[in-house]
Design a protein around this nucleic acid. Structure first.
Lengths: 276, 276
DNA sequence: GGAATAATGGAATAAATATTCCAAAAGCCG
DNA sequence: CGGCTTTTGGAATATTTATTCCATTATTCC
C-alpha cells in the first residue's frame, strides 16, 4: 500500500540554460524513450516554444505520454509549464527585432536604411553560422599555441586588416607582446620573426599573396602558424599549424566581418587570460 | 434575403513579408478596433508565433473577437492559420543556433569555446539592438552629406580604428576619395581638410581626445562632420553636423564592433552608390 | 432626425490540446 | 522460470483555446 516511490522531486529549471544543463546531466541515466526525448529536445530546443506536445512527440519518435512524463521528470508540472519557459525566453530579444528589420528593409530598396538592414542580417547570419560550425578542438589548440609564443606576430591585409588592427589593440590592452605587420611603406618585417614566436595570419578570398608568403616563410623556419581563413581549402591551409575557419556571409561585394571579429576577440582574450 | 455583402475575399499572405505589406496597405482604411489590431501586430509580429488569441487581444487592447475578425479580413481562415505562418517562419533560423550556442557556453566556463559563445552572443545582441534603434533620418542625412563631400576624411583611434580602416578599404574599392587619419608617427594631418571636404569621426567611451579635437577643428572651419558614437550625449555630439549612434553590447572589457561595422559599411556603400 | 448599415463585445459552442490513468509489455532478480 | 518492479502506449478525460453567433451600440447617409 505504500505508494510513495516518488523519485526525489527536482525543482524545475528557471532558465533555458539551466534547462540545457539539466538535460545534459540526466540524459545518460535515462530509460530508452525518455532518453529519446532528452536528445530530441536538446537538439531542437528552439521548437519547444512553437510546437504542440503531439508535434514534438512525432519528432522525437515517442508517444505523447512519454514526452509528458519527461516534462514532469524535469520538475515541470507538465508540458505547458515547460513551454512557458521557452515562450517567455523568446519574447524580449527577437520579436521586435524581426519586425523592425522587416520595416527597415521595406523602407525603399536601395535606401540607406534598407542597406543597413541587409548588413545587419548578413552579420547575424554569419554569427549564427559560426556558432554552428566552430571547431572546438582547433580553437583550443590555437589558443595553446599562441599562449606559448614569445611574441605574437599579426598579419592580414585588405579586408582582413581591420581584424588584425583590432587584435593588436586587444593584445596591447592585455599586455601580451604582439607585433602588427601592416605593410606600411612596403617594409617587410619578416626578420622580426624569431624562434619561439608564433604568427597569426588572417586572409580571405581573394587571398593576399603577402600574407600567404609570410606564413610560408614562418613555417619554413619552424615557427607556429595559426591561420584564420574562410574555408578548409584556402591556400594558407598548407602553411598552418592550426587552422580556424569562419563562414562569413557576404552582402554584395562586402563582408560583414562580424564572425571573424568575434572569433578573433575570443582567441585574443583566451590567450591573454591563459598567459597570466 | 440576399446575404452576400462579403467584401472581396483577399488571398491570405504567404510569407511574413507579405503579411507586413498587407498590414501597411490596409491599416489606414480600417475602423478603430481593427486598426488597433493592425498596429499592435505590426509592432509585435514576433509574438504571434508564441501567443494565444487572448494574450494578443489584451496586448492590442481589443476583445478577442475583434482580433478574430481581423485575421479573417487578412484572408486567413482564422487565427490558427495566421499563427501557422509565423510558427513555420520561425523554425529554420534560430533553433539549431540557440542550441549550439547553449552547448558551446556550457563546454566549461573560461574555455575558448565558451568565450567565443559569449562574443557571438554580444555581437548578435548588438546587431539586434541596432535594428531596433536606428535613426533613419540621421542616416539619410549623413549619406547625403558624405556623398556631397570633396574628400572624405576618416578618423577613429584605438577600438574605433579597425572600423575606419575597413571604411578606408571599402571607399577605395568604390573609388570614393577618402583619406585615413591614422595618427601614425604622431603626424597631424589636420591641414589636409579643405573646404568642401567632410569628416567622418568615430569614437566610443572612453572618448579619444584627438578624434574630438579634429572634429571640433573641422567644424570650426565650416566643414561637415558626421559623428558615429555610442550615445547621444557623447562629447563629440556638439561638434557634429549629423550624429549616428550604435548601441554596442560589451562582453567583459571588449566590444564586439559588429553593429558599428554594419553601420559603417551601410554608410559607405550608400555613399558610394549615390555618388555614381 | 431617423432609417439603414457597419462595427462591436460578450457569451455560447466547437475544436484542439494537454494531461491522467491503467492495462499490457519489458526488464530484473532470486 | 515465476514473481516483482519499471517502463510503455493508447485510450479516456480535463482543460485550454479558438471560433461563431447575435443582441447592442455606433456611424453613415438621406
Amino acid at each position: 500500500m505504500d505508494d510513495l516511490p516518488l523519485p526525489p522531486i527536482l525543482p524545475a529549471p528557471l532558465t533555458v540554460e539551466e534547462f540545457h544543463a539539466r538535460l545534459a546531466a540526466l540524459s545518460p541515466a535515462l530509460p530508452r524513450r525518455l532518453r529519446q526525448c532528452a536528445e530530441y529536445l536538446a537538439a531542437n530546443a528552439g521548437r519547444i516554444a512553437v510546437s504542440t506536445v503531439a508535434e514534438l512527440a512525432v519528432g522525437a519518435d515517442v508517444p505523447p505520454s512519454a514526452l509528458m512524463r519527461f516534462c514532469q521528470m524535469l520538475g515541470f508540472s507538465g508540458f505547458s509549464e515547460m513551454q512557458k519557459l521557452f515562450r517567455e525566453a523568446y519574447a524580449p530579444g527577437l520579436p521586435d527585432y524581426a519586425t523592425r528589420l522587416a520595416n527597415l528593409k521595406q523602407s525603399g530598396t536601395g535606401s540607406p536604411a534598407a542597406l543597413l538592414a541587409e548588413f545587419i542580417e548578413a552579420g547575424r547570419l554569419s554569427l549564427e553560422a559560426l556558432a554552428k560550425s566552430v571547431d572546438e578542438a582547433a580553437l583550443s589548440q590555437s589558443v595553446q599555441l599562441l599562449a606559448s609564443a614569445g611574441t605574437i606576430h599579426l598579419v592580414g591585409l585588405r579586408r582582413a586588416f581591420p581584424v588584425v588592427t583590432y587584435l593588436a589593440h586587444v593584445f596591447e590592452k592585455m599586455a601580451v607582446p604582439a607585433m602588427l605587420h601592416d605593410g606600411a611603406g612596403r617594409l617587410d618585417h619578416r626578420f622580426a620573426l624569431r624562434p619561439g614566436d608564433v604568427l597569426l595570419a588572417i586572409t580571405f578570398a581573394p587571398y593576399s599573396e603577402e600574407t600567404i608568403a609570410l606564413a610560408q616563410d614562418a613555417r619554413a623556419r619552424g615557427l607556429g602558424v595559426v591561420a584564420l581563413t574562410d574555408t578548409l581549402t584556402s591556400p594558407i591551409a598548407r602553411h598552418a599549424t592550426t587552422l580556424l575557419t569562419v563562414p562569413e556571409v557576404d552582402f554584395g561585394a562586402f563582408r560583414s566581418l562580424s564572425a571573424t571579429i568575434a572569433m578573433a576577440i575570443a582567441l585574443a582574450v583566451a590567450v591573454g587570460s591563459s598567459r597570466r
